[in-house]
């Protein structure tokens, strides 16, 4: 029998990093399916524009940066949570606690309930299920949490990969049949603005945003986001992890774009502008009736894979970044894993019943979630690019970035405040898009962190890109 400490360490690694034994195949499956859920299939197709494929094409670059820049850094620093890297690189642990808390709150109050809520709603409408959205969401949550709690990251990654093969295959069949239904002609009867890849200023992705803001959103999402990045940390070696992430990047650029935009365009040609009903309507039109059970399984699996993956990341953040540091260092990880998982599951189902009653709350919360992306990325950029930074200066940058973005989202971008347009339009800058604002927030957050570090804490930060030594000895 293993001594207690050794047993604890191996429990940790099994639950949070699948014993460090995931092959590239399962890393690729887990990274791909953690991201792909019904909100993407329904929401992106609901835009009914080819342009939306840029989110996936740009994701290819985000994944390559994860593979070749971030994965070696996380492995070198022996990280289980990505926030451990921040503690190692800054002079102080406060930034790790703050960012970990933000991820944890975002997962608990927004991400977990949103995944089962949107999945349950789609299943209820499409398959005419008589049960309430909350009941369907509770069943999905029970199964999803079951995988994360009983099997840890290994079960999550294996589920993601096996389900992923079925989901991607069936989604490609939908694309093939949809194209066949319109005689492989997407261009006639579809306006040019829905087929162009060069986004105009009033489109969801203006072309200029691809060259800066979009890139940083992708870096945040794939490389400094515990929900995704944890899956790339579970391989035995850096090389195996890189192989898995590159495979996920190839899937992202070759397979995902058609499945999230083509059914939407076909829906426009067949039914006109039908918003978020597009995917369901195309599926009902092109898939034969006898496949509806199979399609329901695909949708349920897409929800389960994302829910269980985010659940596993949530349990990891609480256990490693909070419970073991502040409550009980030698806690029994298996018991804690069960308790935290069950609490998170109950909380997410309870929130679904609230969200189902007032849909605008979840939209507001999702906007709030978006507020955190660039401020969090700023803390990573300052940590990786500079030396001699105080953790409290990074927290100041984060708070400032959050405030600037909130001011934009809830005041400057509210058309009612400025006669039907954004504030930027009133000063002759109508092209300023929220992706541009994200870039502005990122640059401001880094600058505020550097200035606070210099003026308040008297530290001279030094640019030191690529050097992996810790910042100061005082951490």
């Amino acid at each position: 029998m293993l001594p207690r400490a050794a047993s604890n360490a191996s429990d940790d690694k099994e639950i949070f990093l699948a014993g460090g034994g995931l092959s590239w195949f399962f890393v690729a499956g887990a990274v791909t399916l953690t991201n792909l859920s019904t909100d993407q299939l329904v929401g992106m197709n609901g835009n009914q524009m080819l342009l939306l494929a840029w989110w996936e094409l740009a994701g290819f670059i985000g994944l390559l940066l994860l593979a070749f820049v971030f994965v070696p850094i996380y492995y070198k620093n022996n990280c289980t949570t990505i926030t451990q890297l921040l503690e190692k690189r800054y002079d102080g642990a406060s930034i790790r606690t703050v960012i970990s808390a933000l991820f944890l709150l975002g997962n608990l109050f927004i991400y977990l309930p949103a995944v089962i809520y949107s999945g349950a709603l789609f299943m209820q409408i499409l398959f005419g299920i008589e049960a309430s959205v909350t009941t369907i969401a509770a069943v999905l949550a029970l199964f999803g949490a079951g995988f994360a709690i009983l099997g840890g990251l290994r079960a999550v990654a294996v589920l993601d990969t096996y389900a992923g093969i079925g989901i991607l295959a069936l989604a490609l069949v939908v694309v093939f049949l949809a194209m066949q239904a319109i005689g492989w002609d997407m261009t006639t009867w579809v306006p040019e603005e829905r087929l162009t890849m060069i986004g105009s200023l009033d489109s969801p992705i203006p072309f200029h945003t691809l060259f800066a803001g979009m890139l940083f959103i992708q870096i945040f999402y794939w490389s400094t986001n515990q929900n995704i990045t944890q899956k790339a940390l579970a391989a035995p070696t850096v090389k195996e992890a890189q192989k898995g992430v590159v495979a996920a990047a190839i899937i992202r650029v070759l397979i995902v774009p058609p499945i999230v935009v083509i059914p939407g365009i076909v829906a426009f040609k067949l039914f006109g502008d039908v918003d978020d009903r597009a995917y369901g309507m195309v599926v009902a039109e092109v898939l034969p009736d006898w496949t509806s059970g199979m399609f329901a399984a695909m949708i349920a699996a897409a929800v389960l894979t994302t829910y269980s993956a985010v659940m596993n990341a949530t349990i990891t953040l609480w256990s490693v970044d909070f419970h073991r540091r502040f409550i009980k260092p030698d806690v029994d990880m298996r018991k804690l894993n069960r308790t935290v998982g069950i609490i998170a599951m109950i909380a997410s189902v309870a929130l679904v019943s609230i969200y189902a009653g007032a849909e605008s709350i979840i939209n507001l919360l999702q906007e709030l979630n978006g507020l955190l992306f660039m401020p969090i990325l700023s803390a990573f950029i300052a940590a990786l690019l500079f030396r001699n930074m105080d953790a409290r200066a990074a927290v100041a940058g984060l708070v400032c970035g959050f405030s600037i973005y909130a001011f934009h989202t809830f005041y400057l971008y509210v058309p009612e405040n400025f006669g039907g347009v954004s504030w930027y339009a009133t000063i002759g800058l109508p092209w300023v898009h929220y992706i541009d604002v994200m870039l502005f927030v990122l640059v401001s957050s880094v600058l505020v962190a550097l200035l606070t570090n210099l003026i308040v804490f008297g530290n001279h930060a030094r640019l030191a890109f690529g050097k992996c030594a810790p910042q100061l000895n005082g951490a």
Partner: peptide, 30 residues
């Protein structure tokens, strides 16, 4: 959904669960 489709749905989900647990148990046994 017709009963046969519910059965297909349940069968596929069960198969997915069984395949996943087989792999997890095999990896733990190594």
């Amino acid at each position: 959904m017709a009963h046969i489709q519910v059965a297909v749905f349940a069968g596929l989900m069960l198969a997915l669960t069984a395949l996943t647990w087989r792999k997890v148990v095999a990896a733990r046994g190594q």
